[in-house]
Amino acid sequence: MERLLKRLEEAEEVMKWVPSLKNNIQTLEAEAKGLSDQVDRLTGEVYNLTVQVSVLEKLCFD
């Protein structure tokens, strides 16, 4: 019985952390989304620069 009560107390202690962990997960998901958006934007910028370099190369070497 004592062992079960101890396990119950431990489980209750863990359950206290659940809302905080859920909040941390949501924060990290939002940060990951923001970083993913930045990567997408930077990928587009790299593509545009690649096109500009290609145009400049044609102008200079043709």
Rank of each mutant, 00 (worst) to 15 (best):
M1W: 09
M1V: 12
E2T: 12
E2M: 06
E2L: 03
E2C: 05
R3N: 13
L4H: 11
L4P: 10
L4C: 12
L5G: 07
L5A: 10
L5H: 00
L5P: 09
L5V: 14
K6P: 03
R7W: 13
R7A: 14
L8V: 07
L8K: 09
E9S: 14
E9I: 07
E9K: 15
E9D: 14
E10C: 00
E10V: 02
E10S: 02
E10D: 13
A11F: 07
A11M: 09
A11V: 12
E12P: 00
E13Y: 13
E13D: 12
E13F: 11
V14K: 15
M15D: 13
M15T: 06
M15R: 15
K16A: 04
W17S: 14
W17M: 10
V18D: 00
V18T: 00
P19D: 06
S20K: 15
S20P: 05
S20E: 14
S20F: 11
S20G: 15
L21H: 07
L21F: 02
L21V: 12
K22A: 13
N23S: 15
N23C: 11
N23G: 03
N23T: 14
N23L: 15
N24I: 04
N24F: 07
N24K: 15
I25V: 14
I25T: 14
I25E: 03
Q26M: 13
T27F: 01
T27R: 07
T27S: 11
L28D: 04
L28R: 05
L28C: 06
L28I: 11
L28P: 03
E29A: 12
E29Q: 14
E29W: 07
E29Y: 11
A30C: 01
E31P: 04
E31W: 09
E31F: 04
A32R: 12
K33S: 03
L35C: 01
L35D: 09
L35M: 06
S36C: 02
S36A: 14
D37F: 01
D37T: 10
D37I: 06
D37Q: 09
Q38E: 13
Q38G: 04
V39E: 06
V39L: 03
D40V: 11
D40L: 11
R41Y: 05
R41V: 10
R41I: 09
R41F: 11
R41T: 09
L42K: 12
L42A: 04
L42D: 06
T43Q: 08
T43C: 05
T43S: 12
T43Y: 03
T43R: 08
G44P: 09
G44E: 07
E45N: 01
E45A: 01
V46M: 01
Y47L: 09
Y47D: 00
Y47Q: 08
Y47K: 07
Y47R: 06
N48F: 08
N48T: 10
N48Q: 10
N48P: 02
L49V: 01
L49E: 04
L49D: 10
T50R: 09
T50Y: 01
T50I: 05
V51L: 05
Q52N: 10
Q52A: 01
Q52S: 05
V53I: 15
V53K: 08
S54I: 02
S54Y: 07
V55M: 09
V55W: 04
V55L: 05
L56K: 00
L56F: 02
L56A: 04
L56I: 09
E57S: 00
E57P: 00
K58V: 08
L59H: 06
L59S: 02
L59T: 00
C60D: 13
C60G: 03
F61S: 07
F61E: 00
F61N: 06
D62M: 02
D62V: 05
